[in-house]
Design a protein around this nucleic acid. Sequence first.
DNA 1: ATGCCGATGTCCT
DNA 2: GGACATCGGCATC
Length: 205
Amino acid sequence: MSPGLKKLDIRFYDRRNVLQIARELLGKILVTQWDGIHSSGRIVETEAYAGVNDRASHAFGGRRTARSEDLYGAPGTAYVYICYGMHHLFNVITNKKNIPHGILIRALEPLEGVDHMLHRTGKTVADYTLTKGPGNLARALGMTKLHSGANLISEEIFIVDDGLRYPKDQIAMTSRIGVESAREDAELPYRFIVKGSPYVSSRKS
DNA sequence: ATGCCGATGTCCT
DNA sequence: GGACATCGGCATC
């Protein structure tokens, strides 16, 4: 890795405040590399899922199933699950093992490997939909549920800090997408976006 | 610009 | 059988 780039380590993920970590992930670079294929993008949208008391979380009420087992994993684990039967959604696990805090990565600005992203998604044009939305970005980076449980300190999937910091007024905190059924937790401001990025997903689609 | 729909793995009733 | 941390296509306004 080039000087000036710092891979996030266990200390970044092993913290209690999942909202703060979700906010700090904005601007970080998500990298996948295997089989000689390297691809990366800058994170511009995240959503925190705050454990057993969060009605929108797969772990609400302590629910624990085969699918969600990796949500209970060690800090710095990948949790990838299939949503609506076809989309693979990538989450970063934080806090201690068995405390099911997860952060859904919802949008990236592509950096490296755009040609590989196009090939993986079957798209012909690198428009904003390439890495806009959690299903799209996971597909572009080649992540599937086979990567669930992967260690984010590994060489295959990891997150890098290149020093970029967004000014406070460029970050917004909003309610999460697609969690209307989470009743009183549906409106919690657990979504973080980089204002003005054309890759940030929209509420209506 | 907005809305409806189908695809469909996993979990729940 | 129904709900769901989604997406793209097509209909309609």
